[in-house]
Nucleic acid binder design. Structure first.
Lengths: 185, 185
DNA sequence: GGCTTGTTTCAATTTATTCTGAAACAACCA
DNA sequence: TGGTTGTTTCAGAATAAATTGAAACAAGCC
């Protein structure tokens, strides 16, 4: 029968593996490796931790820890807590994966989709009007306009779709997703 | 009334702006700036272009152009063409935004989600079994298991959902998306 | 005020990524 | 086969991004 230390060591090892594999995905999610690691550490341990504990566990500098934690707070996927009789700040991760995911989507729309949409509108408005041209040139301008419109319409559909998922009433996201996959093929 | 050269200059300018704004998003999408620029150039001009034309227009080196084009081919969002009487290879972008998007999702699932899922399964299997423990330790192991399971279940739902969108029969993606947003609030 | 504890900032450095340019390669032609 | 045109590769250079560590800052306490 395994003893307690054995068990604990294995647990820690599993946690570390979880953190590492999450860190690898960081790039894909548009956040830095440390951010991803800190977040996954808080998620998988389920325990509030302070800056020093995070530094020690991830072997990173104080500055890096501070900035990564700040960024996670800005993204809204971790939150501050306090322990009685301890002046340090503690941080904990949202334990609901779906709500965590919603926060990420919300933030990425704000940071990436919205600015791009704004630019696309600008470009459309500053593109030459097909009415003012004739013949082949007019065709070309019309085609250009069409491509812009299609991209715009796509982006707006995606934006609206995401907002739906993200909105307070959008907790249906989980249900919707499950339903969609349930009735597959 | 605007003359032809005026019009053409404005068109080129609009295209350049499109390419630039797309390039800015590159990081967020997990591809390099040049890849994004080359792709958006092919998309917005709608014309097949050869390596030299792309180099000139984007002001990049031959090596960079070659590698970026190759990567785009690998992602399946541009394709080769040829012109009669011209030995050069030409490249053109998929003009259907939705199918383009599907290719991207398909590729990202393959590159990011699937490996992560595999690792998560491994971690679950190598995590210590709660049965072997007692008391608080058992509680802790159970909580760990639960968090792993939730993450796994989330990722699998997402994977299935994406596969649905991506599958040949999944051309319904566009319709589904439009419907979902249509009946909003 | 001065002391202790905890947090943030940021210039300098390290690390990772992207890009260049020239050489190697490949395919065709006479 | 040698010449021409087009493409790919890759070591080194340039660029961008993340990280460190020490100093500055805050807040509480005596």
């Amino acid at each position: 029968m395994p003893n307690q230390d054995d068990q604990h060591e294995k647990l820690t090892e599993a946690q570390d593996r979880f953190v590492a594999s999450w860190g690898q995905m960081a790039g894909a999610w548009g956040i830095s490796r440390t951010m991803a690691e800190a977040h996954s550490l808080l998620y998988i341990t389920g325990k509030p931790m302070n800056t020093d504990e995070i530094m020690d566990r991830l072997q990173i500098s104080r500055g890096n820890a501070s900035m990564s934690i700040r960024a996670l707070l800005d993204w809204g996927i971790i939150s501050r807590t306090h322990k009685r009789g301890d002046r340090k700040e503690y941080f904990e991760a949202d334990q609901d994966v779906w709500s965590m995911f919603r926060s990420i989507v919300r933030e990425r729309i704000k940071r990436e989709v919205e600015p791009l949409l704004a630019t696309l509108f600008e470009i459309r408005d500053s593109s030459p009007a097909p009415d003012d041209a004739t013949g082949d040139q007019q065709k070309e301008l019309l085609a250009h306009q069409k491509r812009l419109e299609e991209m715009l319409s796509f982006m707006r559909t995606m934006e609206k779709l995401s907002h739906r998922f993200v909105s307070p009433s959008g907790s249906g996201l989980e249900l919707a997703a499950k339903l969609l996959t349930k009735f597959d093929r």
